[in-house]
């Protein structure tokens, strides 16, 4: 077991754990934001640079600080490592800069974006964004394309996290889309429109941290915070069948996978569950899904709270009630 201290909180973790995962074990505010890292996708991470942290002690053996800020999602912990996340002004400054870069070509069309309300980039900008824009340059623009029967790609919003590429690589047999070109004109794309027909391709929508990939069966139907997320399941031959059904009254508006508090899917679901089964009779509704009370989706969303965490102050702040 290796001892690591993140923002003055110490924890013992197994060898090979990354700083980000160690921080997630601590939980709360010390967790750096991650736009591209996805624990279920091998090889993801290191690209968005929002999770940069300062390592002020490399290890017990070598107490020197690391020369640069490191990406916490891809840097393994060493014994005696001391990491600064929010306690380092340098990290905050850099993160502000990174958010500025991510928003540079982002259209900021949140009012018409289906992802609004559950968008990682929105949360990140709320936390670290600047109040005004420094750029007067035109944003890059791409035409909207359909990359599958049910998936719309809105490339303007993409932050090129590569998550959907890894998803397609690791969940489906043949990846049909990828990153084309390079630099600030690089884009996610297929050579042939509608090409993505794989059974699990819908998971690309869930892993997308922004509104670049959206569900065509749900587009412009409703804002997510008007819907009630309910845990539901069905017998599915292809996947586990455990999903979140987003309901309004007795009507199912959309089906997504179940996401944990870091916005990551607990299990990947198949396209049939996601796109075809929109009737309430297809599903067994288990009950309301827990939503963090900071989320805009939690408005008008009632659920029973675990009593223990309310009375036990050591279990954490209100924020860590998951």
């Amino acid at each position: 077991m290796l001892k690591v201290t993140i923002d003055n909180i110490s924890i013992e973790v197994e060898e090979g754990t990354t700083i980000l995962n160690a921080a997630r074990m601590i939980g709360g505010k010390v967790v750096p934001p991650a736009m591209c890292y996805y624990s279920k996708l091998k090889g993801s991470g290191g690209k968005c640079r929002t999770c940069l942290v300062k390592v002020s002690h490399s290890s017990a053996k070598d107490p020197r600080p690391m020369g640069k800020l490191v990406a916490s999602c891809s840097t393994p912990v060493q014994d005696g490592m001391v990491v600064q996340n929010l306690t380092s002004p340098e990290v905050i400054e850099t993160r502000k800069g990174i958010v500025e870069f991510l928003l540079l070509n982002h259209p900021l069309d949140c009012p018409v974006c289906d992802q609004a309300g559950e968008c990682d980039l929105q949360d990140l900008s709320f936390g670290f964004g600047m109040e005004e824009t420094a750029t007067e340059e035109e944003r890059r623009e791409f035409p909207m394309i359909d990359i599958g029967e049910k998936i719309k790609l809105h490339m303007n919003r993409c932050i090129l996290c590569y998550r959907c590429v890894y998803t397609a690589d690791q969940l489906t047999e043949k990846r049909l889309h990828g990153v084309l070109y390079r630099g600030d004109v690089s884009e996610i794309g297929t050579f042939i429109q509608h090409a993505v027909t794989n059974d699990f391709s819908g998971n690309m929508i869930d892993v997308c941290p922004v509104g670049a990939l959206t569900d065509k069966t749900f587009r412009f139907k409703s804002r997510v915070w008007f819907l009630n997320p309910m845990n539901a399941h069905r017998d599915c031959p292809a996947c586990s069948g455990k999903v979140t059904a987003w309901m309004f009254g007795n009507e199912i508006y959309r089906i997504t996978g179940r996401k944990d508090r870091y916005g990551e899917l607990e299990e990947f679901i198949c396209n049939e569950c996601r796109f075809e089964k929109k009737d309430i009779n297809d599903w067994v509704i288990e009950g309301p899904r827990h939503i963090r009370r900071q989320s805009v989706i939690s408005a008008n969303h009632y659920e029973e709270m675990k009593k223990q965490s309310l009375i036990d102050p050591i279990a954490g702040t209100m924020e860590s009630l998951t």
Binding site: I98, F101, L102, E137, L160, R182, G183, D184, S186
Partner: peptide, 22 residues
């Protein structure tokens, strides 16, 4: 540098383009 940036990580992808435009 704008032309040659691989576009993988955000500071380089967006930053090189921004500097060029300015």
């Amino acid at each position: 540098y704008r032309h040659e940036s691989c576009g993988q990580c955000s500071p380089c992808r967006e930053g090189t383009g921004w500097m060029e435009k300015v």
